[in-house]
């Protein structure tokens, strides 16, 4: 049965290939549809439970009330979201620059690392909520305090990951650069930084989420009021006033923000690594 003419098996092969392609797009569709159906089911269950058991709205409001509150209270929640976002992203930006610069310093001098790294660890392991009151005393505005808190938390993963990445440069490549007389800067920019990129990006993904959490936690500690307040203050305020639908609305905004930050950092990471790094390559077997 080995002498089947090739032309006969070709249509069969093509059909098989088509089926395979159909399978792939089918799977992609399911990947979108299943989570959406799941979400709709959960919201439906929530709405049904609230209605069936007559749960008062100050205990658990139905999804319709929360949605209503999200729209009606946008005048309050929108600006609060902008404040929280601005603190988160400013802290993240400073953490990225500072983390990478100090990582370069650590990687270039072992003694600097020996001298400073214990303090970096202390800063990281002390709960931010415990340092927040002190920082609030030392800074002139609450915004500054929040920024510093979010920065402290977001800074460490960037620093430790980038340092690890800079130290993990391929030794043979380092030899190669030495052989061709590369300067310190050339070695840094053409070799060490690119090879540390995957590590840095892993740190970025952690730091993005942590910056948001720290911005919220620090605001709880600050408990500030007024026009410049972020979402965390609006949460507390809603709790005091038993405005539970608004509390849920604020909570949902925080969730969505967190997921969006994670999605954005993952996308950046994917775009930068997809052509070369093992993590971005689909396995063939």
């Amino acid at each position: 049965m080995t002498d089947i003419p090739e032309s006969a098996s070709e249509p069969a092969l093509a059909a098989e290939r088509n089926a395979e392609r159909g399978g792939v797009s089918h799977e992609r569709l399911l990947r979108v549809v299943i989570p959406l159906v799941m979400l709709a089911a959960l919201i439906g269950l929530w709405a049904w439970y609230v209605k069936a058991y007559n749960v008062p709205k100050y205990i658990l409001p139905g999804p319709d009330l929360v949605a209503q509150s999200l729209v009606n209270d946008w005048g309050v929640l929108g600006p609060a979201l902008m404040v929280t976002l601005s603190i988160t992203f400013q802290a993240l930006a400073i953490a990225l620059v500072g983390g990478v610069l100090i990582a370069i310093l650590f990687a270039s001098s072992r003694w600097v690392e020996v001298a400073l790294s214990p303090y970096m660890v202390i800063l990281q392991v002390t709960p931010i909520i415990a340092i927040a009151p002190l920082i609030l005393i030392y800074t002139s505005t609450t915004q500054q305090a929040l920024l510093i808190c979010a920065w402290i938390v977001a800074f460490f993963p960037v620093l430790s990951n980038t340092t690890q990445g800079l130290k993990s440069t391929d030794h043979n490549l380092l030899n190669l650069f030495e052989l061709y007389g590369a300067s310190r800067w050339q070695t840094l920019f053409l070799l060490k930084l690119p090879s540390a990129l995957p590590y840095f990006l892993a740190g970025l993904r952690i730091a993005g989420g942590l910056a948001l959490i720290a911005a919220v936690v620090a605001e709880f500690a600050a408990g500030s009021a007024g026009a410049g307040s972020g979402l965390a203050f609006r949460l507390l305020e809603s709790q005091y006033r038993l405005n539970i639908p608004r509390l849920f609305a604020a909570l949902i905004l925080l969730c969505v923000t967190g997921v969006a930050i994670f999605g954005a950092t993952s996308l950046v990471s994917h775009l930068l690594l997809r052509r070369w790094h093992e993590s971005a390559i689909r396995r063939e077997n």
């Binding site: 490549l173 030899n175 061709y180 053409l190 052509r275």
Partner: peptide
Amino acid sequence: FVFQEPTLMPWASVFKNVWLPLRLA
């Protein structure tokens, strides 16, 4: 110098890898 392993920069294209010694100069 040719090393035991290819010792290429995985983030750079073949062209850029070969360009490297000249680039460093």
